[in-house]
Design a binder for these strands. Structure first.
Length: 584
RNA sequence: GCCCCGUUCGUCUAGCGGUUAGGACUCCAGAUUUUCAUUCUGGCAACAGGGGUUCGAUUCCCCUACGGGGUACCA
């Protein structure tokens, strides 16, 4: 079999989100497994939505993930250029080809005329409201105008678009690797614009021409494209390329998390109430006046505080005043459906692989990288949202994913994102990483927190003690403080509960016993402690808790004897003395 | 409105005509660690509804309901 060629083709309209990363990942896994080629193509045919820095961001983020390409905008290659804005001449040529073949036509309709047409159809109760085999007869295009007039208009430089001429009433059948056979009547497909009046192609045209020219064998993309797949099939047909048409693979969508799971977090709930109220007031500033704000706020608050009846509360009621209808709609949109770029900011979890700073507003959106995720944990979790290996394996590194991935195990329905599960993956990856592998990552975190990082052997010991109790990389820095400096404060609650009048005596005794020890290791330290407890006939907790308090100042962390070993004799004894002096 | 896709525990999913419907996350209980976390053991929890087809349907077909996507000179 021929080696497959696949591509990931984002548009630089902002940062890539998780769904995009997953699409890139599936393309990558497939290409690597099959020994095929993976191309990164940038689909920047919409000048209006271009966002500076987005392309660089996409490349950087994919790079962090470890998703590598064979050809692309950042690598070059034989099939380039890989940026669609640099391929205008190519598209023009192919559009002309279609016009010559009678498969496409010029259209001169203005926006107003198009709107009028849609309104007319809606009023008439028509099922479709599109430019199609029926309506094109009433519009200004090269099918209704005389050849002379068309020529005159073109020569005069009138703005025009080129539309595909969709054939009337044919069954468009195609095979999707995930959905199997899909059939759509061509009457449901409209005469989509292929070439815009700015001379640039639309997605549909550029996509088909590029995929054809770049020898793409499999189009692996999100399900949001499924409805336009018939158009794409018809385009291949119009060009006469149907025999080399790529295979279609439409991936199930990544959906917003279960609202109930988000609402568990009370702090987040309060924050979300404010945010959503603001967003709503802004969005509906025309319909809802500012003095309704408090009503909206309390409605939002009400809905969010009752996650179990969530869906019920958002059902519309005939008697609802206008603002309430809008609010219900708005909240529904905010909590259900496809995961969107805004969700990270309002639902309290990252949707982007890496932090993104909006070039216009300067606002920052959180990314998984900065949140302390290991890239492969992130990808592993993502891989399982819409695909599974068919056995009970869940933790799979990249090699294993490449080995097990298969198109026929992609699931059919959208997958709700679950932050808890994502966290669990990261935790597992940290736990299962060797101390050495973690070293550079932890070092980076410690540097950010301005903690000493020069002593690798110390760091390795610290990592060994902390990695079992950490879910995210930055937590290493948060917890490592005890290894780099004496406690400055003592947890008040623990002092009250566990520090007794006799604690001083016990710790002084322990201080003496430890001081006399020939070897400063966890086990002998523990033995000395046990001897003390036995001789004085007390409970170990009576000494252990004050000891932990003395060494770290906080109620939890790794085993006290391990901590003592790592921080060393001098620091340990000093901390005991200090605590005894301070707490009496 | 119209078109397309989908529907197994709260969530991600296994199942491809006969199963005590399996696993994972979350949650709960217990054990270990006299802290926290880890680990281990156990538990709660699902085939959307109605018709067919069949000796037998979670599994195949149809309808309904529900969910999702699309419906731009955006991708």
């Amino acid at each position: 079999m021929k080696k497959p060629v696949v591509r990931f083709a984002p548009s630089p309209t902002g940062p890539l989100h998780m769904g995009g990363v997953r699409t890139a990942l599936y393309n990558y896994l497939f290409a690597r497994q099959q020994g095929g080629t993976l191309i990164l193509r940038i689909e920047d045919t919409d000048q209006n939505r271009f966002v500076p820095g987005a392309e660089e961001y996409i490349i950087d983020a994919l790079n962090w993930c470890g998703i590598t390409f064979d050809e692309g905008v950042h690598l070059g290659g034989e099939r380039g250029p890989y940026r669609q804005s640099e391929r205008s001449d190519i598209y023009r040529k192919y559009v002309e080809l279609l016009i010559e073949k009678g498969e496409a036509y010029y259209a001169f309709d203005t926006e107003e005329e198009l709107n009028a047409m849609r309104e007319r159809l809606e009023k008439a109760g028509s099922h479709t409201r599109t430019y199609n085999f029926e309506t094109r007869k009433q519009m200004n295009n090269s099918l209704t105008l005389s050849p002379e007039e068309v020529k005159a208009r073109l020569d005069a430089g009138d703005p025009y678009v080129v539309r595909i001429k969709i054939p009337e009433n044919v069954e468009v059948k195609f095979y999707d690797e995930v959905r199997k056979e899909v059939v759509v009547n061509s009457n449901e497909v409209d005469d989509k614009v292929l070439l815009k009046s700015d001379g640039l192609p639309t997605y549909h045209l550029a996509n088909i021409v590029d995929d054809h020219l770049m020898d793409v064998t499999h189009v692996i993309r999100g399900e949001e494209w499924l409805p336009s797949a018939p158009l794409h099939v018809l385009l291949y047909r119009a060009f006469g390329w149907e025999n080399t048409m790529p295979k279609w693979v439409h991936l199930p969508l990544l959906l917003k998390p279960d609202p109930g799971a988000i609402m568990k977090n009370k702090g987040l709930r309060r924050e979300m109430t404010d945010k959503l109220t603001d967003e709503f007031m802004q969005k509906h500033s025309e319909e809802v006046s500012e003095d309704m704000r408090s009503k909206v706020h309390s409605f939002v608050q009400n809905v969010l505080s009752n996650p179990s009846g969530f869906t019920q509360q958002l059902k519309e009621n005939e008697k609802d005043p206008g603002f309430l209808k809008l609010a219900k709609n708005f909240l529904h949109g905010a909590f259900y459906g496809k995961l969107s770029k805004r969700d990270g900011d309002r639902l309290g979890f990252p949707v982007f692989p890496a932090d993104w700073i909006d070039p216009k507003t300067g606002a920052k959106s959180a990314g998984y990288r900065e949140a302390g995720y290991m890239p492969h944990a992130f990808l592993n979790a993502l891989a399982l949202l819409g695909w599974n290996p068919g056995n009970d394996e869940e933790i799979m590194n990249m090699d294993r994913l490449i080995e097990l991935f298969s198109l026929d195990r992609i699931s059919h329905s959208g997958a709700r994102f679950d932050q808890d599960k994502m966290k669990w993956f990261n935790q597992s990856y940290i736990r299962n990483s060797s101390d050495e592998a973690l070293l550079p990552l932890v070092k980076a975190e410690l540097q950010k927190a301005e903690l000493a990082t020069h002593d690798d052997s110390l760091l390795l010991q610290v990592i060994a003690l902390l990695k079992e109790r950490v879910s995210f990389l930055p937590e290493f820095a948060e917890m490592a403080g005890m290894f780099f400096g004496d406690p400055q404060t003592f947890d008040q609650n623990m002092v009250e509960k566990r520090w007794k009048p006799e604690s001083k005596d016990y710790l002084q005794d322990l201080h003496a016993r430890w001081d006399a020890l020939p070897e400063w290791k966890s086990q002998p330290l523990h033995d000395a402690f046990e001897a003390l407890v036995a001789e004085r006939e007390i409970n170990s907790g009576q000494v252990l808790a004050p000891l932990r308090l003395a060494l770290t100042g906080i109620p939890n962390g790794p085993g006290v004897f391990d901590i003592a070993e790592v921080i060393g004799k001098e620091a340990s004894l000093r901390r005991i003395s200090t605590a005894v002096a301070k707490l009496g």
